[in-house]
């Protein structure tokens, strides 16, 4: 059973230029496991902050963020690192591959944190690269790949350890429409076939249409949740 995500009364404040900015304001939100969510809202509405809190990259000032049975607020930074390695995969707008490593070596990075032999790591990296359609490019460095291919490698890295939760921050922001659609197709397939819980930040309604549900944030608070599955416009 995929892990549900529960956000309870979460507040997060940043101080910029001596000014306090409340980015998330007593936010309450529950996301079902195995569902593909898009997170939308105007700039500064707290989308990326929420994504970071769910991914354990940052911690809330108050309230709780629970993934399954784990309250992330109770973990130290080192414990959070361990938790991230096993439970969550990230896909960023800028692809975020290490430029000096090949596609396979990038995918192996999170696998090095798992108790696997070298052969098992290699086999798993090849398996996920095959899943994203890049087995034939696995010995290429990022600069030798197109933007879409880089993002596919980033997705392969994100799912390499088979985490239940995938977090994507504007994954198609740097891609042309056709390439963006292929990446979104891939994310949708991972959700449908592997039951990954996906939370994707996007400004693009067309990208959001690939999700099951669209969460709208506004000034750090929950606006509304649209259900694409109920509507006829959702691409399935």
């Amino acid at each position: 059973m995929a892990s549900a995500i529960t956000i309870q009364s979460v507040t997060k404040t940043y101080t910029r230029g001596g000014e306090s900015l409340r980015v998330l304001d007593e936010l309450d939100l529950t996301m079902d496991g195995g569902t593909f969510y898009a997170l939308m809202g105007p700039s500064g509405s707290g989308k990326t902050t929420l994504l970071n809190l769910v991914g354990g990259l940052d911690q809330a000032d108050s309230g709780s963020v629970r993934i399954g049975d784990v309250d992330l607020g109770e973990l130290s930074s080192s414990e959070l690192a361990g938790w991230r390695a096993a439970n969550v995969g990230f896909v960023f707008q800028g692809f975020n591959l290490l430029p000096v490593l090949t596609a396979r070596e990038n995918v192996e990075l999170p696998l090095l944190l798992a108790p696997l032999s070298r052969a098992q790591r290699r086999a798993q990296a090849e398996r996920v690269l095959e899943l994203v359609g890049l087995k034939d490019r696995m010995d290429h460095k990022p600069r030798e790949l197109s933007g879409g291919q880089e993002q596919r490698v980033a997705i392969a890295r994100a799912i390499a350890t088979d985490p239940q939760v995938l977090l994507a921050d504007e994954p198609t922001g740097d891609l042309d429409r056709t390439t963006a659609d292929s990446v979104l197709d891939l994310l949708q397939r991972l959700n449908r076939e592997l039951q990954k819980t996906i939370l994707m930040v996007t400004h693009d309604p067309q990208a959001a249409s690939y999700s099951d549900k669209v969460i709208h944030l506004d000034k750090g608070k929950l606006g509304r949740i649209d259900d694409n599955r109920a509507a006829s416009g959702g691409r399935k």
Binding site: G55, S77, S78, A81, W83, R84, N96, L109, P110, L113
Partner: peptide
């Protein structure tokens, strides 16, 4: 710095 961020996001500990 960005690469450090990637490594940390993936789960590499501070040590």
């Amino acid at each position: 710095t960005h690469e450090i961020g990637i490594l940390k996001a993936i789960g590499y500990r501070p040590f």
